[in-house]
Design a protein around this nucleic acid. Structure first.
Length: 258
DNA sequence: ATGCCATAGGAACTATGA
């Protein structure tokens, strides 16, 4: 089965591209981020017509995450990341799919500018994610944590270490928290299939001709629990999606599980 | 150091992003 994650950067602005991508690649589960739409603005009709059941956690203006299942209705397990009742951002949704599979769609805070409250929020969010991920591992089930992590894990995951040196995405604290997650026992699916130092970018800025000169970085990740990692057959990036008219600044990332 | 470009909301411009 195919599971994919796609930061759409506005689900209504991106709807034609999203529907086209669903039809072309037919993922069994799709994790979407940056809906930038309130719950009642989610295009449920168009998604259903494309053959997908959906659950979503919207927010006006920014954030917003969703889970899509082909020919099925995802069963919601968790809406919002646990650990802070005062956190109003819609950045996490978790569902249950066929054969006991658990999949989460997450949109980790960017953290810029740094230093400052946004960077502190990012690190606190990562700590909450670590705690929740630990609980998921304890279930000993196939689990996929997919989404826009806003973390460049290592220097070969960016076109320019120098250009990104001061960015929150590449700070030692952000990377350390990401590594702590991996050390719990999660597998970074892209790196399992495409070991370093192969560059595998998932994001290219709209500005400064970044796509044209392949000035990208890797921030969209699928982390697999041991039971999911055992089933990993392949992983990749749908780069073609980034080259299209009215494209998102992110490309979809996918895995195939046996 | 800032803008570059894009989206949403709302009707000029700001907030947000990475």
């Amino acid at each position: 089965m195919r599971i994919a994650t796609f930061n759409v950067n506005g689900i209504n602005a991106r709807l034609p591209r999203l529907l086209e991508w669903l039809e072309e690649t037919r993922p069994d589960v799709a994790c979407l981020q940056e809906l930038k739409a309130d719950d009642d603005k989610f295009p449920r009709g168009a998604i259903e017509e494309a053959g997908y059941g959906a659950i979503w956690h919207g927010q006006k203006g920014f954030n917003g995450v969703a889970l899509l299942a082909r020919g099925a209705a995802p069963v919601e397990r968790q809406r919002g990341l646990p650990g802070d009742p005062d956190d109003s951002h819609s950045r996490y949704i978790e569902g249950e799919f066929e054969n006991g599979l658990i999949v989460a769609s997450l949109y980790l805070p960017n953290g810029n500018p740094r230093p400052g409250p946004k960077f502190e929020y990012k690190l606190a969010w990562m700590e909450r994610l670590r705690a929740h991920a630990e609980a998921l591992l304890a279930l000993e089930r196939p689990v996929v944590l997919a989404g826009d992590y806003n973390v460049i894990p290592s220097d070969c995951d960016t076109f320019s270490v120098r250009a990104m040196a001061e960015d929150a995405l590449m700070q030692p604290e952000s990377r350390a928290q990401f590594r702590r997650l991996l050390y719990q026992g999660w597998t970074d699916a892209i790196r399992a299939r495409h070991p370093e130092p192969e560059p595998v970018y998932t994001f290219w800025d709209y500005q400064a001709g970044a796509w044209a000169r392949d000035a990208g970085f890797r921030i969209d990740h699928l982390l697999l629990s041991p039971m999911a990692a055992d089933r990993l057959r392949d992983a990749g990036v749908d780069r073609a999606a980034r080259g299209r008219d009215k494209a998102s600044d992110h490309a979809p990332v996918w895995i195939e599980l046996g």
